[in-house]
């Protein structure tokens, strides 16, 4: 049974012109993401994992190859508001309340006033922030701010969620909790998620598919299909299967590095 292809890249290449000469950020990236997948991009810094995500989001323009999102070009997909994007930092506007921040994309996309209110309370519930609508971002903890920024990405009807190291700046206890919540959210909403991380346990715990990348030039070193069940409590990280997958990821990273 073949599922619907959501994101597809063919022979993707990206070279940045910098003052120190050209930097080959992405080389010959071929990738297929199917509907409902939870894909992690993992690799050392400089391997192009964030760049790849930005290319998919049409925040960078590739110098070669093609990207299609929902069957159209990345640019058309962005204009059709096909995805929600979560950055490394929450990036909430300090002059808007939490509710106001979540309304921001809805205002831009022209949702009705009633529709806005309804969606705000719905997504705040999803990320367990109900009751914080009137608070300002700087009155909240870092973990809560990041949850609000996820809610902001969920507020409009995009089936794709692109997340760029969203929990990178948080401490481990908060991070574990948010990972669990993210899985529950994914199970409930059936979204397709692309997730950039540099933590092996995080990638293994969350993903159905792990894309291991290596640097100079940024390329895909290995793609690992996870055999873990969809239902994943935190304790699964002590299971033999989990450790085996983590080992494969680590091997892929080491191999990619020694070849680089």
């Amino acid at each position: 049974m073949s599922k619907e292809v959501i994101i597809e890249t063919k022979g993707l290449d990206l070279t940045f012109e910098t003052n120190d000469g050209p930097v080959h950020a992405l080389k010959d990236i071929n990738l297929t993401v199917e509907k409902g997948d939870f894909i992690s991009f993992i690799g050392p810094s400089g391997c192009g994992k964030t760049t790849l995500l930005r290319v998919i989001a049409d925040l960078e323009t590739p110098t070669g190859g093609t990207v299609s999102v929902n069957g159209v070009s990345a640019h058309e997909a962005r204009m059709a508001r096909a995805y929600g994007y979560v950055f490394q930092a929450a990036g909430l506007y300090p002059w808007r309340t939490i509710g106001g921040n979540i309304k921001l994309p809805l205002e831009i996309m022209g949702y009705s006033k009633d529709g806005q209110e309804e969606r705000v309370s719905k997504v705040l519930e999803l990320v367990e922030l109900a009751g914080f609508e009137q608070k300002f971002p700087w009155q909240l903890s870092g973990g809560m701010q990041q949850r609000a920024s996820i809610a902001r990405a969920l507020a409009f009807d995009a089936d794709i969620l692109l997340m760029d190291e969203p929990f990178g700046a948080l401490d481990e206890i908060v991070r574990d909790h948010l990972n669990e919540q993210l899985l529950a959210l994914w199970a409930r909403t059936h979204k397709t998620i692309c997730f950039v991380t540099h933590s092996i346990p995080e990638a293994v715990f969350l993903s159905t598919k792990i894309v291991v990348m290596s640097p100079r030039p940024g390329r895909i070193a290995d793609v690992i299909e996870s055999t873990l069940p969809k239902e994943r409590p935190l304790e699964i990280r002590d299971s033999k299967e989990f450790i085996e997958i983590a080992h494969r990821v680590r091997d892929g990273l080491i191999e990619g590095h020694s070849n680089g």
Binding site: M79, R81, G84, F87
Partner: peptide
């Protein structure tokens, strides 16, 4: 900052939307 402008891009916001919702408040 850069990230906030990228965010506006991901929403496919027009120039004037970006100005009214982001640049002007940030410039206050």
């Amino acid at each position: 900052d850069h990230m906030q402008r990228d965010l506006m891009q991901t929403y496919g916001a027009s120039y004037w939307q970006g100005l009214m919702k982001l640049s002007l408040p940030a410039a206050m």
